[in-house]
Design a protein around this nucleic acid. Structure first.
Length: 489
RNA sequence: GUCCCCAUCGUCUAGGGGUUUAGGACACUGGCCUUUCACGCCGGCAACAGGGGUUCAAAUCCCCUUGGGGACGCCA
């Protein structure tokens, strides 16, 4: 049997969308599982909206997401070109063939005439369908119009009274009657073919045998089947993946938060975690497994088991999963991963990294399993890099104004000053002793220290941090906190 | 409006006629661990949209209603 060929065919009118990334992932998983070929094709037939920049963003997004393609831009292949804008001759050939065989025809109706027909259909509450005015134009009329240079589109002569049936790998059998389709346009008056025509041509010529795409394309499928038939090609298998919805169950959009894959990268998500999440969104394997390595996904994924109904995107679950993946990173890998985010926040630069070879690793170690995203490193560690601590508002409210901490801070400063060997064990012992003497609950006592050192209500292990910060810095911060809380009183 | 698709906890799902007092995960929540914040561990809350069939038996099969989504472009 021939090797399976699947494709992802985005239109370069923006970034790589999270929904697109998921269909790309599904295609990729199947190609890898079946040892087939994964093809990337750019659908830039809409010259108005397609941009070079979008193409770059999409390729970059695919690479970051870890989906490598076997044929496509930058890669080439035997079925190229892989940009629709470079395939015009192929389309022209196919169009001429349909014209010769009388399966398609020129239509000289102007946009304003068509608008009027649509308007009329709307007022009569009827469904608009092209009325076929130009379908059987007399030969003389046709040639004279052509000679006059009148602009025209090309329409497919659709088949009459036919039930179009296809078996969808996800949805099952779908049937649509040809009456609900009209003689739709396949080439614009500017000579460019239209999406439905280009996909069919390309998929056929590129020998795509499984078309896996978003389920918003279901209603295009009958038209495309008509085109496959008119052009004399076998139809491929179809699998229509349900949409991703936002919390309010409407189609996921910017309103719901980040939709571009690059945003997830910038927000500190790991590509393998995102792959895991997106694969599991709308697909289940058994009754317990949540964590799937990419190899595991390749082994276990099955398009037939993709759910028929749309899935709501759950950011919290993604965060949880990402946290799990971060925890599984080695200390070295985690430190490397976190560096861009520290730089981005302006906390460190290359010089700093050179001058403090081990410090970063120590900090990442003390932060431990707390991060849900790589970006979380910032609120968990910025106070190591800053000269002075910024006190959060809720620290002032819940710590400084709640109890009288002045005596405690004074005592802490005084006693810690005496610690000779500044290590975890000694600091712990000392803190323990001070805590016994002070009339403050243990919990509040430690929160007070946390507030002084970090300005926050949450942070990594206290004594661990104190070791990294060093005695001098710790004492200064305790004193500063003392001043801050007496001033706030 | 017309056509198409869909329907199990708040969310993602398992379950595909009897094994189900419907399983897991996230979220939420109670507790344990911890001298502190988290992690972790143990527990709790919580669903078969409604109505008709078919059957000895239906979350599972069929029909209708309702609800949601999508498509109706010289966009993709």
């Amino acid at each position: 049997m021939e090797k399976i060929r699947v494709r992802f065919a985005p239109s370069p009118t923006g970034h790589l969308h999270i929904g697109g990334a998921r269909t790309a992932l599904y295609n990729w998983l199947i190609a890898r599982q079946k040892k087939g070929r994964f093809i990337l094709r750019i659908e830039d037939t809409d010259v108005e909206r397609s941009t070079e920049e979008s193409i770059r963003a999409i390729l970059e997004g695919m690479k970051w997401f870890g989906l490598d393609w076997d044929e496509g831009p930058e890669k080439g292949g035997d079925h190229g070109p892989y940009l629709q804008s470079q395939r015009k001759e192929l389309y022209a050939e196919a169009i001429n063939k349909l014209l010769d065989e009388k399966k398609a025809y020129q239509c000289f109706c102007t946009p304003s005439e068509l608008d009027a027909k649509k308007e009329k259909a709307r007022t009569n509450k009827g469904q608009y369908a092209y009325d076929g005015t130009c379908r059987d134009l007399p030969k003389e009329k046709l040639t004279s119009s052509l000679e006059d240079g009148k602009p025209y589109v090309i329409r497919l002569k659709k088949r009459e009274d036919k039930e179009i049936v296809f078996k969808d790998l996800i949805k099952g059998e779908i049937r649509i009657h040809s009456d609900t389709i009209d003689d739709f346009i396949i080439r614009r008056s500017d000579g460019n073919v239209v999406y439905n025509f280009a996909v069919v041509c390309d998929d056929a010529l590129m020998k795509i045998d499984h078309v896996i795409r978003g389920d918003d394309h279901i209603s295009n499928t009958p038209k495309q089947i008509l085109l496959y038939e008119a052009l004399g090609y076998d139809t491929p298998f179809f699998a229509h993946v349900p949409m991703i919805l936002g919390e309010d169950k409407t189609r996921l959009s910017k309103r719901h938060g980040a939709t571009s894959i690059s945003q997830y990268r910038d927000d500190g998500f790991l590509p393998e975690a995102l792959r895991n999440y997106l694969a599991r969104l709308g697909w289940g394997y058994d009754d317990s497994q949540e964590i799937f390595s990419t190899d595991d996904l390749i082994k276990k994924f099955s398009i037939e088991k993709v759910s028929k109904n749309p899935a709501v995107f759950n950011y919290k679950k993604l965060e949880w999963l990402n946290g799990v993946y971060i925890q599984n990173l080695s200390l070295e890998a985690r430190t490397e991963a976190v560096i861009p985010y520290l730089k981005e926040a302006g906390l460190i630069d290359d010089k700093f990294i050179r001058d403090n070879p081990d410090l970063l690793k120590e900090i990442v170690a003390v932060v431990g399993d707390r991060m849900k995203t790589l970006k979380d490193i910032v609120p968990y560690s910025d106070y190591f890099f800053m000269e002075k601590v910024q006190f959060d508002e809720d620290v002032k409210e819940k710590i400084f104004q709640k109890a009288d901490l002045a005596d405690a801070y004074q005592l802490i400063a005084k006693e810690l000053e005496k610690v000779k060997t500044w290590d975890k064990e000694n600091i712990e012992k000392e803190l323990q002793a001070i805590s016994d003497e002070v009339p403050i609950k243990r919990k509040d006592f430690f929160q007070a220290i946390r507030a002084a050192l970090t300005g926050r209500l949450f942070s990594p292990d206290l004594t661990g941090m104190m070791v990294i910060m060093g005695k001098e810095k710790v004492l200064t911060r305790i004193t500063n906190a003392l001043n801050a809380c007496t001033k706030d009183k």
